[in-house]
């Protein structure tokens, strides 16, 4: 088993599923900030391990927050 998959990666779980998961809200800038890069880009879910459903929700929330100038479109 070990020989077959030397680069086995532990199954990461979605940060938005489970009993006390945070609710995705465009107003919660502090939460959303964790899912954007230093330049303000949305981090792909292969890195953050967000489920695809929640990633869509998250992207929507981030875009709403950007529209209200709560978050930047670009940071440099």
């Amino acid at each position: 088993m070990k020989n077959r998959r030397p680069f086995f990666r532990r199954q990461k779980s979605c940060p938005f599923s489970g009993p006390n998961a945070p609710k995705i809200d465009y107003k919660d800038v502090k939460l959303l900030q964790r899912f954007v890069s230093e330049r303000g880009k949305i981090v792909p879910r292969r890195i953050t391990a967000v489920s695809s459903k929640k990633q869509r929700e998250l992207a929507r929330a981030i875009k709403r927050a950007r529209n209200l100038a709560l978050m930047p479109f670009v940071l440099d």
Partner: peptide, 14 residues
């Protein structure tokens, strides 16, 4: 009165 992440109509806050 919060500061905006980017300028809107030349305003930095709103």
């Amino acid at each position: 009165l919060k500061s905006l992440a980017y300028k809107i109509k030349k305003n930095r806050k709103g």
